[in-house]
Design a binder for these strands. Structure first.
Lengths: 104, 104
DNA sequence: CCGATAACTCTACACATGTAGCGATAATCG
DNA sequence: CGATTATCGCTACATGTGTAGAGTTATCGG
């Protein structure tokens, strides 16, 4: 059965980092430093978010001797979701017994 | 003053590895495993040998996400030198008091 | 033969991406 | 509510190149 987990704190950190400047392309190494996640946690997260259509991805060729960079950016859907998250954060006060992430 | 050191055992190992199949292009990571040298020892050696004209180098583009490979191969001069080394190894028996590497 | 020092090797680190596999967590259904 | 199990996060490893800096070695001039 398909399950819909609510975004983990790690995912939220990544999305916020990307949302800070939504038009800018970011790459893993960079984001990992900012958000304090190791490659083994971060890359799977990025791939999953991209699979769900929340991120779009490209490659930046990269100078000889250094690997090409995999670039990511929020899609419209991704931005929406960040907004949603913020709304929920505000709504977290009232004792509406736990409501979670609802698929769009 | 410029000095002429005789090839270190590490350098000899690298040159022999390359001499095993002189027409084949090899790259650092690969050679490092074969010859058991870490990058920090190997790359400077390769660069120095290339500077002296004993190796020739190219780049192999490399798939996205992985760095381009820096390829190396012995030049004619390089092969010569390997031969020279072998000769000296044979000549090492007689007590000719230490003769070293003579510039071509 | 000896001392100055060029030349060298090695340990760390930085850059960059990604996978395998294990254990934790949480959504869904009975 | 409680068990099942999809989904997730994390550690470790693999691939690859290269530099900085510390310390070592050995060549050459005297």
């Amino acid at each position: 059965m398909k399950r819909n987990r609510s975004p983990s704190p790690q995912v939220v950190r990544v999305m916020h980092a990307l949302a800070a400047e939504p038009s800018r392309w970011r790459y893993g190494y960079d984001l990992g430093a900012e958000v304090d996640l190791k490659s083994g946690s971060l890359y799977p997260i990025l791939v999953r978010l991209a699979d769900r259509g929340l991120l779009e991805a490209t490659w930046e060729p990269g100078p000889p001797g250094k690997p090409a960079r995999h670039l990511y950016r929020l899609t419209a859907a991704g931005l929406d979701q960040v907004a949603q998250l913020a709304t929920e954060a505000v709504a977290q006060r009232p004792p509406v017994p736990h409501r979670r992430w609802k698929e769009a």
